[in-house]
Computed example of a mutant assay.
Amino acid sequence: MQFSIIVPVYNRPDEMKELLDSLAAQTYKEFELVVVEDGSSIKSEELCKSYSNQINISYYYKENQGPSIGRNYGLAKAKGNYYLFFDSDCILPAHYMETIHKELSENFVDCYGGPDGAMDDFSDFQKAVSYAMTSFFTTGGIRGGKKQVHKFHPRSFNLGFSKAVYENTGGFPVTTMHPGEDMVFAIEVIKRGFETRLVSDAYVFHKRRISFKKFYKQVFGFGKTRYIISKHYPETFKIFFLFPSLFVLGTIGSLLLGVGVHRVFAFPALLYTFLVFADALTKTKSLKISVKALAASYVQLFAYGIGFMDAVWKHKVLGKDEFGVFGKGFY
């Protein structure tokens, strides 16, 4: 195997430095790195050049067209036959490349994904968001490394696939829809008969968003595109996709009835709050982080649920097609 790591970047040289540091520290160093600057006004070119004596690195600048098209640009430039993708705000543990080389050498799979988490030196907010995105009480624990899923759908923050997958699919869908383009890619990979796998030991540290406002906007997009994808691939729809929207309506209804009718109606919302807080406190061992994790969990569920309902409303009631994707395929 010849590994090519492809990273699209947009105005994030500070985050790129941390990613580059982690790549330079890998115990297995047989890989190339392809950095695709997606029309940034704050470029990472000089930063990338400064690592040329530590990493086999290539840097390319292109007009801004979004991460999906940026990844495909990197694929066209890559020289390897197994392609790995990370977000620019990820940090790899030193064993990552060695772990994935061993995994694929001993038990090859055409497409894999790994989980993400938080480093000890991440901010309290980043740790809280990491909890919200990986907890059983919010996402079912799938993003945190849970294996009990029928078909694993890797995400582009930590993803790898073979040249065979690339030649069959042509890479990522050519769409301005973001986030969600990696979900479409994973669906297509599985539909075309390729095996996918979660490699739990191939984890990354993900810095994520730096404010609740940005976090809300990101997860709102997840909910919105989930509906769009379900319309194109109805066979992928699962009933639990509706849970965040039902959670929003149920929580609001519970609290309103608790205030207006009888406090017993508020019990479900209060019980969920207690369970999340207790679980976060157990995992983080910090009262401060647990409070923020509770807030992040509510933001995560409300943003996803409202995003899903917003997409349904705009499509079914208003007849809008925000991304120009209804009525045509992604590939």
Rank of each mutant, 00 (worst) to 15 (best):
G140F: 02
K79Y: 00
F185K: 13
M309K: 02
P234L: 04
M177I: 08
K285E: 14
M133L: 09
G80C: 10
K288Y: 05
M133P: 00
P268F: 05
A280P: 11
G39T: 03
E188C: 14
G74Q: 10
D116N: 07
V7E: 11
F152S: 02
F152Y: 15
G307T: 09
A311Q: 10
F3E: 01
V174G: 01
D310E: 05
T27S: 15
S290A: 15
M183Q: 13
L256W: 05
R208H: 13
K231W: 01
C90Q: 04
F241G: 03
K283M: 14
L275N: 10
S41H: 08
A118T: 03
I228N: 14
M1V: 05
A303H: 07
F194G: 07
H178D: 15
T196F: 06
F194D: 07
K328G: 07
D21K: 12
K43I: 05
F152Q: 02
E103D: 12
A25K: 11
M97C: 07
F220Q: 07
L256I: 13
D279G: 04
V291R: 08
S50E: 15
K17V: 04
V259L: 14
A132G: 11
M97D: 00
K79Q: 06
F277G: 05
I100T: 06
V174Q: 11
L33P: 02
K231A: 04
D110T: 08
A311K: 08
M177E: 10
F125P: 02
G144C: 03
